[in-house]
Amino acid sequence: MAHRITHEDVLHVANLARLALTEREVDEFTVQLGAILEHAAQVEALDTEGVPPTAHPLPLVNVLRADVLRPGVDRDEILAAAPEAEQHRFRVPRILAEDEA
């Protein structure tokens, strides 16, 4: 099968998505993602000659907004919802890990 996904592929994708998976989950998702890709392979087998590529299922273009100000949200309210805030800013953990610094 052309689109077979491997154990390593799943680990790679999980890493890109910053997901820590257990061995059992990796096995489980390898099967599930394999099934999705198999379905995609079936679609790919269809004759699409003359069908223009599409990025969107909706028959719509140019959904636009006038360049007009709209009130946003209250800063105190939004910062209160953040795990941590400092100096009216969102406080986030160290960005680069030790081995990158």
Partner: peptide, 21 residues
């Protein structure tokens, strides 16, 4: 006058997190 995908002000030097939605 506003951001690319929302109506928040596109302005330089405003107080932090006052132009957000």
């Amino acid at each position: 006058a506003t951001k690319l995908f929302c109506g928040c002000a596109n302005e330089f030097g405003a107080e932090p997190n006052t132009n957000v939605c």
